[in-house]
Design a protein around this nucleic acid. Structure first.
Length: 106
DNA sequence: CAACTGACTCACT
DNA sequence: TAGTGAGCCAGTT
């Protein structure tokens, strides 16, 4: 079975996030046309480890907090990837005021 | 079709 | 500061 259009929308939105920037689940949901579906977005990424195709490490929650320990293989891994993308991670938190991607809707 | 779950978010205690 | 509850949406059972 192919992935639902909703998920494709989510992956597409995540893939649009440029290197050196991050986006929140709520924002991905919004730009994908599913405002308020932040949970569904997180779930979609969780069940679809399209690693290499979908930069899920650039997706953080509303607090700029990285995903829990069970994603990617560890929040630390996500942190390393973000830092490698020129996105500093302070104590597992990204400065959304400076690194949240703005080019889709707002 | 109804209920449960979840990488979410906001508000209250 | 940490923990809990309710609301939101989509997917799975």
């Amino acid at each position: 079975m192919q992935i639902s259009k909703f998920r494709q929308d989510v992956y597409n939105a995540v893939k649009l996030v440029p290197r050196g920037k991050v986006a929140t689940y709520a924002q991905i949901a919004l730009m994908s046309g599913h405002n308020g579906a932040a949970r569904a977005v997180g779930n979609a990424l969780h069940v679809n480890p399209y690693f290499g195709e979908v930069p899920c490490h650039r997706v953080v929650n509303a607090s700029g907090r990285l995903a829990p320990d069970f994603a990617f293989g560890g929040a630390d891994e996500q942190k390393q990837m973000l830092e490698r993308e020129n996105v500093p991670v302070e104590n597992g938190v990204v400065d959304l005021e400076k690194y949240q991607w703005r080019g889709g809707d707002n």
